[in-house]
């Protein structure tokens, strides 16, 4: 029997609900993916073109003109492409998740389902693009004669970490955006600032001291990107910084979940 009564204060997360509605997560993710490249002449090719063109621009400006140093003499195109994959996965997921509740307000005001379904599916919707771009990366590595090692097996974990970061921040932003539409104007700025704080176009080895490197690692994407480079290009392993990154993500995620849960009950009234 279901009992509906006013909820006050902090409530339990009830993640089991989310599991019950897993098919809806699947369908909403599927919708996002289906719709993304509809009526686009190049269609799904954009999933490959976006990182590829970005990589070309970076290689010309950062690699060729500014001569940004890479680790172990890795060619700049592959050096930046390896970082662009997790970065674009993260940035896309964060952008979609942040505006997901407002974007789905027609559902929120008309149907019940655990509201967590919405940011979850927004985050998951970037995975297909990531996989497609990953194929390009393999081609690029072959072209530059890079060896693939067993470290590749760490990638799924790093991908999960990137998605968890996007989800954690996305939970905060999406819930805030329901009431304050300022958030959706802030998101592009946040993403841009975050991009410069992450070692996408540069190497994390340019951070001078070990102390600063730990501060740098507070940005979970720093750990993720360093991890990607290590697993694929055999550069410096992320070690301690990855532990810091993971801890930060967990804190953000748990607080984000509770905050979201608390705000959830007024979504339908104020969205």
């Amino acid at each position: 029997m279901l009992v509906i009564r006013p909820a006050r204060g902090w409530t339990a997360l009830n993640l089991r609900d989310l599991w019950i509605y897993r098919e809806l997560v699947y369908f909403l993710t599927w919708r996002d993916i289906k719709v993304r490249y509809k009526q686009a002449f190049l269609g799904v090719a954009w999933a490959i073109l976006q990182p590829l063109l970005t990589m070309v621009i970076f290689s010309v400006i950062m690699g060729y003109l500014l001569k940004v140093p890479t680790d172990n003499g890795v060619p700049y195109p592959v050096f930046s492409f390896v970082a662009l994959l997790p970065w674009q996965l993260f940035a896309g997921a964060l952008q979609r998740a942040g505006t997901s509740l407002v974007g789905n307000s027609n559902l929120i005001t008309k149907v019940y389902f655990p509201r967590l379904v919405i940011p979850f599916s927004a985050v998951a919707a970037g995975l297909i693009d990531f996989c497609l771009a990953f194929l390009v990366l393999l081609g690029l590595m072959f072209y530059y004669h890079r060896q693939i090692t067993v470290n590749l097996l760490w990638l799924p974990l790093l991908v999960v970490l990137a998605l968890m970061t996007a989800l954690a921040v996305g939970l905060w932003l999406s819930a805030l955006n329901v009431q304050y539409r300022d958030v959706q104007h802030m998101i592009p700025f946040i993403v841009q600032a975050w991009f410069y704080a992450s070692p996408v176009v540069y190497s994390s080895s340019i951070i001078p001291s070990a102390k600063w490197r730990l501060v740098f690692a507070l940005n979970p994407m720093a750990g993720v990107i360093q991890g990607f480079r290590w697993a694929l290009l055999g550069t410096q392993a992320p070690d301690a910084s990855l532990a810091v990154s993971t801890a930060v993500v967990l804190v953000l995620l748990v607080t984000g979940l509770y905050f979201f849960k608390r705000m959830e009950r007024t979504f339908a009234d104020i969205v």
């Binding site: 279901l2 509906i4 909820a7 559902l107």
Partner: peptide
């Protein structure tokens, strides 16, 4: 869809609601 401010409801059975057609 929205919480009551006061009071309570007990419901026995799965609820399906149609507040509009074609939601989503």
């Amino acid at each position: 869809i929205t919480d009551p401010t006061e009071g309570m409801v007990q419901i026995r059975g799965r609820v399906g609601s149609l507040l509009e057609v074609g939601t989503g």
